[in-house]
């Protein structure tokens, strides 16, 4: 029989895998809400602000941002850099801001209710 801690660790990993799947979008939106960012800066923001619990490949970020751009959730402006091609700085469009606001209202702010905070802390 497996050690209890090992079972909990395995269950925790399985839960986190599922939980984190949909989390990247939230972190990307948070990054872009702060200010316009290029992909490298978004990646750095996600990893730093999530204290290393979230990680993402640049390729995956590019793919998602391209998708969001087609859906008119994000847009970008090109800026010249001293070396190499122009760099794309992404930002939330009005649709993106509204989408983020409504998502946060429905799904995130509930965790700031005192009764929930109390449950989380005990």
């Amino acid at each position: 029989m497996k050690d209890k801690n090992l079972v909990i660790e395995e269950l925790l990993n399985a839960w986190e895998e599922t939980y984190k799947k949909g989390q990247l979008t939230l972190w990307v939106f948070l990054a872009l809400k702060e200010e316009r960012k290029c992909v490298e800066e978004i990646k750095e923001f996600v990893e730093r602000m999530s204290e290393g619990t979230m990680s993402c490949e640049e390729q995956s970020l590019y793919r998602n941002l391209r998708k969001f751009q087609h859906l008119e959730i994000v847009a970008y402006e090109s800026k010249k850099v001293s070396k190499g091609p122009d760099r794309k700085y992404y930002y939330l469009t009005e649709t993106g801001k509204e989408l983020f606001k409504r998502f946060v209202e429905r799904n995130i702010l509930i965790f700031t209710k005192e009764s929930i905070i109390n449950l989380l802390n005990h």
Binding site: K21, G22, T25, K67, H70, L71
Partner: peptide, 12 residues
């Protein structure tokens, strides 16, 4: 779909 994207794949 939403603008040609499968709904369940947009925010994956």
């Amino acid at each position: 779909t939403i603008k040609g994207y499968a709904r369940e794949e947009i925010f994956q």
